[in-house]
Design a protein around this nucleic acid. Structure first.
Lengths: 219, 219
DNA sequence: ATTGTTCTACCGAGCGTTCGTTCACATCGC
DNA sequence: GCGATGTGAACGAACGCTCGGTAGAACAAT
């Protein structure tokens, strides 16, 4: 797992210590950011929550926004990790897509508050850091882009090649919708029903013979 | 058009004046919020931008958050207005849906910065005000819900009745995606191509007689 | 018409507070 | 004893909001 946290300078020499303390900081900050948001959380609170003094914390970061970046990076890494975990080389495209979607919705539920956090606070990052976060977001979208591509090539998914990227974005956004529209969607659908219905809406006109489950029927 | 701005008390007696000044405030605030976000905009800046003194401005609102609420209400009203404008009673469901989608994407482009604003700052509203904003969001979703419903009844749209609400949310979210993922989607698709491809992806398995030039699969 | 009174809208310096960040000093490990 | 790490009181700037006051319109009494 490539880390970009090296972008953030520290006064401390011991690299091991940096990683350990920053993990502390992330853990505390996540709790507070989820609860009250980035702007309403003070640096003093973060320090208290992660068991460091305010002075010590500032030896490991340079600004409050650095904490936000660390948090975003952590969440995105976790997300990407869990999503990649289910894509198997040997599966056909349609099967990968089906597995991928199920996993997507599962992960969105597991990490609901965290995804919502990224979603709402990314915009508070300084421009230069935001660049990296958005790139990560595109990488995650790329996972589904490749699945669709593969399905196109092995004939298990029908889709206009120029719509592949768009469809990948649709998939991610509909996954994220489970977090940022949960106030409305969650009132009418449980995760299982949401998953089933979305899969049938999304796969409906993409997969060849199949209904909702990723059956394959070569032409 | 029902206004909820009456929820916000004012020191001023003249109702006409209240409306006029608040319109000023909204206009100035929108410009600033779009440019630098809610948190980074100060009350002094808003006052200066809308041509009132800080003291006078506070005669028409009670807090900075009130300004955010006024702005959100304004944007939502404008949105709802423009979307309702194209739904005609006499149209069949599928036709309404097609018109509605085109209009949705058009409006999202026209109001891109404003929709993005609502999207990013709603969470900064106090709980009691947020309730009204979220309700409005559901009402807007309801527009497409009713279109789908009608299409189901007149047989021009095939969809599981229990998926109607979900599909309506999907439509809205995919429309909003044009604003909040424009940094990625806009790199690869113009508005026209985005509209066409989304319509074909969305209508693909819903409409009976092949619309949208795409592929037709009668019966 | 003139004067006095009242009421409404407008103004902006200033209050009290909070926040992110720093730095002089303390402590620890070798 | 010396460099690396930890500490928290203190700083200065910024912010949301208030409040004492002014201007002038409206009306009343003279």
């Amino acid at each position: 797992m490539k880390k970009n946290s090296e972008l953030i300078p520290s006064m401390i020499k011991d690299q091991r210590l940096i990683e350990q303390r920053r993990a502390q900081i992330i853990e505390g900050a996540v709790r507070l950011f989820v609860e009250k948001g980035f702007h309403k959380t003070t640096t003093r609170e973060i320090a208290r929550e992660c068991g460091l003094s305010i002075g010590t914390m500032y030896e490991y970061i340079q600004s409050k926004e650095d904490v936000l970046y660390l948090v975003c990076e952590y969440i995105h890494s976790e997300l990407e990790d869990r999503l990649r975990r289910v894509v198997a080389e040997e599966d056909q495209g349609a099967v990968s897509l089906s597995k991928g979607l199920k996993q997507l919705f599962r992960v969105m539920e597991e990490m609901r508050p965290l995804v919502l956090l990224i979603y709402q606070e990314t915009k508070s990052l300084p421009k230069d850091k935001m660049k990296y976060v958005l790139r990560k977001e595109e990488e995650i979208t790329g996972i589904f882009e490749r699945i669709l591509q593969k399905g196109m090539e092995d004939g298990t998914i029908q889709i206009d090649p120029s719509s592949v990227k768009l469809m990948a974005h649709n998939i991610i956004v509909i996954g994220q919708m489970w977090t940022f529209r949960h106030w409305a969607v969650g009132k009418h659908y449980g995760l299982e029903e949401f998953t089933e219905r979305q899969m049938s809406l999304l796969l409906g006109d993409l997969t060849t013979g199949g209904k909702t489950d990723g059956k394959t029927s070569a032409t």
